[in-house]
């Protein structure tokens, strides 16, 4: 098992860096080229969500990403330290429903639409989003 860990301060500019690192490691781990866009977007969504949450609750605290090559899966965990309630699962039906607070949950909806294996663990001490994709079995 190879693990890369990355911590960054809660600044929007760093989200792009996190996306690039995750995509580079996914490629090196053997994730199919056709899935790399999904990895890039899902990791970006998780990091954006974490940055927004930290900016509201704890702007001085860092956000952590773990990228793991684990038994033929490429696994990413994005962890923040902002208190979170249960995340509502809803689908937009009309424009009037799309308030700013509703839009903040869009990121989770996008991640769940992209990664075939996603777990979200919200808690008063922060949220962990774990997602994974198939990777080549190491030779």
């Amino acid at each position: 098992m190879a693990t890369v860990e990355l911590t960054f301060s809660a600044l929007p500019a760093h989200v792009r860096t996190a996306r690039l690192v995750a995509t580079a490691i996914a490629r090196r781990t053997g994730v199919e080229e056709s899935l790399l866009d999904e990895v890039r977007l899902a990791v970006g969504e998780a990091c954006s969500r974490a940055v927004e949450a930290h900016r509201v609750h704890c702007p001085g605290e860092p956000i952590r990403i773990e990228l793991r090559d684990d038994s033929g899966r490429f696994e990413v965990t994005v962890s923040d330290q902002a208190p979170s309630e249960e995340i509502k699962q809803e689908q937009p039906l009309d424009l009037g429903m799309l308030s700013d607070s509703f839009m903040s949950n869009f990121g989770i909806a996008v991640i769940e639409g992209l990664a075939d294996d996603v777990e979200v663990f919200p808690s008063p001490k922060g949220t962990n989003i774990r997602m994974s994709w198939p990777a080549a079995v190491p030779v």
Binding site: L41, E45, L98, D100, M103
Partner: peptide, 12 residues
């Protein structure tokens, strides 16, 4: 090249 939910929110 890239659009995330923040961009969707801006369009909405």
């Amino acid at each position: 090249d890239f659009l995330d939910s923040t961009g969707l929110g801006v369009l909405v």
